[in-house]
């Protein structure tokens, strides 16, 4: 997810007219593409474990200073993991969730209504802001009406470690960051290629029709670029899912460690375990490519 966002932003920035931004993105892409992913994972893991403060550094000393401090008093990055507030579900939380889901549905309904108005009458209703309002405002209102059913449990320093909150372990953070940055570099290049593949005549034509640059990008260039982008993007997602097996480098117990490690050691049946593991990844890959194929077919050029 982060990889996609990074990649799309990076892809657009790499085509920016701004020389410095272009060069900066080129350095990012080349740096991540030409160095093994494994090296990035262990490097980021080392950064997380060696470069971050210990929990005891957060203790306020007698002179009122601490070696490290929490961000917004809610997030603590330590060498034992990242501590974030955990939600506490109150009695009425179900209603709140239901309203949230309903209002998101409402936002989509509004969008399709606006589209219908546009196609029927040619009148352009504002899309983004009303949809966002519909999605968010009722939930916030109900949150206060219902008496704050969802609270937050902040992590606090207690004893030798943080108590409360949720701990996101360092291996997971390192793996997630490294995979996102690495895959983001590849997606950047894919997006760039996709946008470049739309011929210049298309954007010139849409300017000639009097469209504004924003709308040109959204209605003319991106839909065409998307067709070129989706297939290589699929294979990047497949790579990502397979690269997640590198969790072994930082000792995060993913399926390779459980099925290919613990089960194998306990049963001693190497062949069966490896077969199951292979089938698991094969199944995962097939599911991802199946979903992406559906998406691809929906975006594909409709030919006769």
């Amino acid at each position: 997810m982060l990889a996609t966002i990074l990649g799309v932003i990076g892809g657009v920035l790499r085509l920016s007219k701004n020389w410095i931004v272009r060069k900066l993105m080129a350095v990012y892409v080349e740096g991540f593409r030409n160095v093994p992913l494994l090296l990035w994972i262990v490097a980021i893991y080392a950064l997380m474990t060696e470069g971050t403060p210990q929990p005891r550094d957060f203790r306020v000393a007698e002179d009122g200073t601490a070696a490290a401090s929490m961000i917004f008093d809610a997030f603590a990055i330590t060498n034992r993991g990242v501590y974030i507030p955990a939600p506490v579900w109150g009695p009425n939380a179900v209603f709140l969730l239901a309203i949230f889901v309903l209002s998101i549905v409402g936002a989509f309904v509004y969008r399709s209504y606006a589209k219908k108005v546009l196609f029927d009458t040619g009148r352009l209703l504002p899309m983004v802001w009303p949809a966002l309002l519909i999605a968010i405002v009722p939930t916030i209102l109900m949150y206060f009406i219902l008496g704050r059913p969802i609270g937050l449990d902040y992590p606090e320093l207690g004893g030798f470690n943080f108590q409360g909150g949720t701990q996101i372990s360092n291996p997971l953070t390192a793996l997630w960051l490294a995979l996102s940055l690495y895959t983001g570099a590849f997606i950047t290049e894919i997006v760039r290629a996709g946008i470049l593949s739309v011929s210049k005549g298309q954007s010139e034509a849409s300017f000639a029709l009097g469209m504004r640059p924003n709308r040109t990008m959204n209605l003319v260039i991106l839909p065409q670029a998307l067709r070129v982008i989706i297939p290589p993007m699929t294979s990047q997602y497949l790579n990502l899912s397979k690269n997640s097996s590198l969790a072994i480098a930082v000792g995060y117990p993913d399926v390779r460690a459980t099925l290919g490690g613990i089960t194998l050691n306990q049963t001693g049946r190497a062949l069966e375990c490896m077969l199951l593991l292979g089938l698991f990844y094969l199944g995962l890959s097939l599911i991802i490519s199946f979903l992406m194929n559906i998406y691809n077919n929906s975006k594909k050029l409709q030919e006769r």
């Binding site: 690269n243 097996s245 390779r256 290919g260 490896m274 292979g278 094969l282």
Partner: peptide, 21 residues
């Protein structure tokens, strides 16, 4: 498809554990 569907690391373990079978 079988080779591509499975991560290299699993194949390497296969090489070290299973190829002798």
């Amino acid at each position: 498809e079988i080779i591509r569907g499975v991560p290299l690391i699993v194949w390497l373990f296969t090489a070290s554990l299973l190829l002798n079978y």
